[in-house]
Design a protein around this nucleic acid. Structure first.
Lengths: 189, 189
DNA sequence: GCGTCTGCCTAATGTATGTAGGAAATTTAG
DNA sequence: CTAAATTTCCTACATACATTAGGCAGACGC
């Protein structure tokens, strides 16, 4: 019985790669076991169950995304920061579609609390320091940014934009222009 | 052998209800068969397979959503139209979470072509007639609206906004204000 | 070197999808 | 109206994935 050296971490990483290759929803313990030439039952020494694997992949992806976001934000402000951060989201989703899909997994509250989700919100707030927004508009703007980033990336990945004229890169840049303009001139009715 | 009177339509409707109750990803032929007190194999006379059912639910949801959008748009223009249409999306998603999730199913191109997806894009363009946008900004704006609507609804449903101060209704209204302001004053660099 | 612990195993069960072929109910044709 | 054709639902079976129980052997502490 050769020991392969499975750990939750290695399984999570391999699961993330698998997700990028076949889609997050098609990540299965069978396929993962196959990657390590190991029987499925062996995975249960390291993972609670299939859901546990998916949760761990989601946490990994949230962390990677937050790390890359933080790196992009370093030394930038204003529109520069907005653009750099937004591009991290879009680029990550294109490069790691399975992991990106994992970030949308619904986490139970305790898990969400220890996830990198909070860092994401904090970084969006940091971006907004370059604009002149106070509460509660700042929170509203954070939610708008989250909606646009996620919505755009998700529709683009799903092929929702594929069939018409301006290419998606062009649209993306114009949308970032528009968001910047909006944040500089947030309506206060 | 009592005939129950299954049809693709009845199965699709029941599948949609099931999706709203247990989640779109948990819609299963087993559960659907259970609803009609019928064996699973019997469903294959009316549905090609499980994927076929999911596709049909997605098409149903896209159609319902388009119908409600069209109704909301009738006789409205400008911000009034924008708000009414956006509210249709959000309300539909809250009332029919499973069906809304179904609308995000990736359809193959031929299926997408016969879906109500095109009507959605047309309606967004109709809304934009109340603003002063020409191509290619109109397409860019359509994509922005789609991103915001879908992104917001999807994050709100996923609990992404649950833990902070302004309630989601308030944020939603302010985001619609912001979009209206943005469309009235679209940046042209 | 010996005992314990752990990692991976075999075996068995439950649930879901999907296929093949049969029998009864319904529809259609003569 | 009756017989044939079709349709609808069935049983039976094959495959795949998830999960649990219990066992054996290699790694590790002493």
């Amino acid at each position: 019985m050769a020991r392969v050296g499975l750990t939750p971490e290695r399984l999570t990483r391999a699961g993330a790669e698998l997700a990028d290759e076949v889609g997050f929803d098609k990540v299965t313990l069978s396929a993962l076991a196959g990657r390590f030439d190991v029987k499925v039952a062996s995975l249960y020494s390291h993972l609670k169950n299939s859901q546990d694997l998916k949760t761990k992949i989601a946490l990994l992806a949230l962390e990677e995304l937050a790390d890359q976001g933080a790196a992009a934000l370093a030394g930038r402000a204003g529109k520069d920061a907005l653009t750099a951060f937004a591009n991290v989201y879009r680029t990550y989703a294109r490069k790691h579609p399975g992991r990106y899909a994992a970030t949308q997994l619904r986490l139970d509250p305790e898990t969400a609390a220890v996830s990198a989700g909070g860092r994401h919100a904090q970084m969006m707030r940091a971006i907004l320091r370059g604009y002149d927004l106070t509460e509660p508009d700042q929170t509203n703007a954070v939610r708008l940014l989250g909606s646009v980033f996620h919505g755009y990336v998700s529709l683009e990945m799903g092929g929702g934009f594929s069939h018409s004229a301006p290419d998606t890169q062009e649209t993306w840049l114009r949308i970032l222009d528009a968001l910047d303009a909006l944040l500089r001139n947030w309506p206060t009715p």
